[in-house]
């Protein structure tokens, strides 16, 4: 699972108010090259929760994304490359996603998070 996916997900247990973002407990993180596409990054940026991406990247061993992003930075190759790396090249292979409200752990195994709720959580 890449951090683009992490940025979209939240805990949807019935009654949970603040299920976003999942806290990542990494066991195995891989770095896998992905095609660098500045247009995709500029297109996707306004749809992301930036703070959650910065924190997730730091947890996964890539700290240093700036807290604020300006229009100029979205034209800057150095910034876009670090954004690209955090969003699409850090892969959570093994570990878990932890609901910030309930502490419920959703396991990530072989890169696939299991977000299916149990019968008593729906």
């Amino acid at each position: 699972m890449k951090l683009l996916t992490h940025n979209m997900l939240s805990c949807h247990i019935k009654g949970v108010q603040n299920g976003f973002p999942f806290k990542i407990e990494p066991v195995k993180v891989e770095q896998i090259d992905a095609d660098y596409d500045p247009d995709f990054l500029r297109h996707i940026y306004p749809r992301l929760e930036w703070k959650a991406l910065c924190e997730a990247a730091a947890t996964m061993g890539a700290p240093g994304l700036p807290e604020e992003v300006t229009e100029e930075m979205l034209q800057d190759d150095d910034f876009l490359r670090s954004f690209h790396h955090a969003l699409l090249e850090l892969v959570l292979e093994e570990g878990s996603l932890v609901c910030p409200e309930t502490g419920r752990q959703f396991p990530v195994h072989k890169g696939v998070p299991n977000l299916l709720l149990n019968e008593d959580e729906n």
Binding site: M1, L4, T5, M8, A34, L88, G111, V112, L115, L116
Partner: peptide, 9 residues
């Protein structure tokens, strides 16, 4: 390109 995510949901 490997998918950005495969999720069980």
């Amino acid at each position: 390109q490997r998918p950005a995510g495969l999720i069980r949901a």
